[in-house]
């Protein structure tokens, strides 16, 4: 898989503040690549540089072999961009909105007509064709904005926080839409500060913090690299004694670092090992007669790891240090 988007030593300084401190990224063709990091990590700056909206202080980035510094005009033709915060024009109908951007890319009238019909179908806004843009819900506007980024059939899509401000249902719809776009052969770069949002969707991830890549690779690779231990949660049936016995069974396993019983009958297991080990652990527990209603890797474990990875850099912002003695 060849890289279609690469950045080399991207540095961006705003009036002395270092937003990017030498960012290197390689994004393979056809991937859905997630850029994760806390607020202020440099996600939007990175995407703005890739979208030719910002010039890096140092370094360069290439999209489809075109430098964003040397040939921004040609880069603009191969990428579609959906900014984090975007507005919509007043006094404009949905089809006019897409027609306008089609004209911006110099598409002839017949191709624009077809493109508008296709895209509205794709983002499920066909029945809103003649509605005013400002009258659409936030989720619909988001989908329309995504459609606008597709008018010229770009090979690379840059989406800055596409799911922010969406309700859960709209998020699911967006995710489905992105999967569909991937099957159309688009490379998609998504940023988010919420890891689980990307975890299920992305093929690869880069966690960035303070303008630097902290970890990058496929979702699985990152998990194994970051994970000192996974957290499993097992909901066990039975009364107090049975629960305590179950906890003891888990705790006895050599791969388990800790096993704690919560009030709601869930055993939290700190587990060092791979998926094979987890399967073996479950088999042993079932074999020992523990009645397990559910056994799952804690959904937010990567999130917790993510927080661990990015946390040390935030110590200085975390409030009064130990030297203050505290009060209370």
């Amino acid at each position: 898989m060849s890289a279609i988007v690469t950045t080399r030593g991207l540095v961006k300084r705003y009036n002395g503040t270092l937003a990017l401190a030498g960012l290197d990224l390689d994004i393979g063709e056809g991937e859905i690549f997630g850029l994760v990091g806390p607020n202020g990590a440099g996600k939007t700056t990175t995407l703005s540089i890739l979208a030719t909206l910002l010039q890096p202080t140092a370094g360069d980035a290439e999209i489809a072999g075109l430098s964003v510094l040397r040939s921004p005009d040609r880069v603009r033709r191969v990428l579609g961009f959906m900014p984090d915060a975007f507005g919509v024009y007043d006094d404009m109908r949905v089809w006019e909105y897409l027609d306008f951007f089609g004209r911006c890319y110099g598409l002839p009238a017949d191709r624009r007509r077809r493109m508008i019909a296709d895209l509205l179908e794709l983002v499920d806004l066909a029945d809103k064709r003649d509605s005013y843009v400002q009258g659409l819900s936030r989720g619909m506007q988001q989908r329309l904005c995504l459609a606008h980024a597709l008018v010229h059939d770009p090979s690379v899509l840059l989406l800055d926080e596409p799911a922010s401000g969406l309700d859960p249902r709209a998020r699911v719809e967006l995710r489905e839409l992105l999967r569909e776009l991937r099957t159309l052969g688009k490379t998609i770069l998504i940023s988010s500060h919420i890891l689980p949002e990307l975890e299920e969707l992305c093929t690869s991830l880069a966690i960035i913090d303070h303008g630097r890549v902290v970890a990058a690779g496929t979702v699985g690779e990152i998990e194994t690299r970051l994970r000192a231990g996974a957290v499993f949660r097992a909901r066990v049936l039975g009364d107090g004694a049975e629960l305590e016995a179950a906890r003891a069974v888990f705790a006895a396993d050599p791969g388990v670092a800790s096993a704690a019983l919560r009030d709601d009958g869930v055993v939290e297991i700190g587990f060092r090992g791979d998926d094979e080990g987890a399967a073996a652990l479950l088999a042993r527990a079932v074999g020992a007669g523990v009645r397990i209603a559910s056994f799952a890797r804690a959904a937010s474990d990567l999130e917790e790891l993510f927080l661990q990875v990015t946390a040390p850099n935030h110590v200085d912002e975390a409030g009064p240090g130990p030297a203050d003695g505290g009060g209370g």
Partner: peptide, 12 residues
Amino acid sequence: EKQTLDLLAVTP
């Protein structure tokens, strides 16, 4: 102000 300029600026 309406944050539409970026949309325009990334077009050719």
